[in-house]
């Protein structure tokens, strides 16, 4: 599930290792984009084949083979962002306000130009006088491309992913 080399193109890869501090800075910048609902720059953070996955099942070997909350390739991410930005989706116009923190970073594997990082994410969500807290384990696969890092895979496993949720009008 977290093989580093799966989607790497060795020919173009910048193989300098990705350090924890560099990775954290990337993850925090991404988190802030999402809290600001600033989705166009968020789309640009991804590799072409990157997968954004919000699973239901907690131990699936292959998320493509099971039902998920979201299983997005690039096309679906774009469609999702278009929807959230359109102003015509009742659940995201206006969206809930969110404030999130990402912490408890652990490097799972590190290879030249690629890093798999696990972290904890806490989101506090507010809409219609109601404040909710959502916790998740997040796994990031980051790859280096030229001067920047890109998201190649992000799996957000909510603490209650296989239980009852509510309508979500923003991104994790």
């Amino acid at each position: 599930m977290t093989t580093l080399t799966e989607t790497r193109n060795p020919a173009s890869a910048d193989l300098a290792p990705i350090g924890l501090v560099e990775a954290q800075a990337f993850v925090w910048a991404e988190a802030e984009l999402l809290d600001r609902h600033d989705y166009l720059p968020w789309l640009a953070l991804w590799t072409e084949d990157g997968r954004y996955i919000i699973p239901i099942e907690r131990d699936a070997d292959d998320y493509a083979a099971v039902l998920n909350i979201a299983y997005d390739d690039g096309e679906m991410r774009e469609a999702r962002v278009k929807r959230l930005r359109s102003g015509f989706s009742m659940s995201s116009a206006p969206p809930a306000r969110t404030v999130r923190t990402v912490s408890r970073f652990v490097v799972e594997t590190s290879e030249p130009g690629a890093l798999v990082l696990r972290a904890a994410q806490i989101i506090v969500e507010y809409k219609y006088t109601r404040t909710r807290t959502l916790a998740a384990d997040v796994t990031y696969r980051l790859v280096r491309e030229g001067e920047r890092l890109l998201l190649d895979r992000k799996v957000v496993t909510l603490i209650n992913s296989d239980d009852t949720l509510h309508g979500i009008g923003y991104l994790f």
Binding site: I69, A70, R80, R83, S89, M90, S91, H166, G167, I168
Partner: peptide, 11 residues
């Protein structure tokens, strides 16, 4: 919960 239809129905 994050489909393109359900959250708008629920709202």
């Amino acid at each position: 919960p994050m489909g393109f239809g359900t959250p708008d129905d629920a709202e």
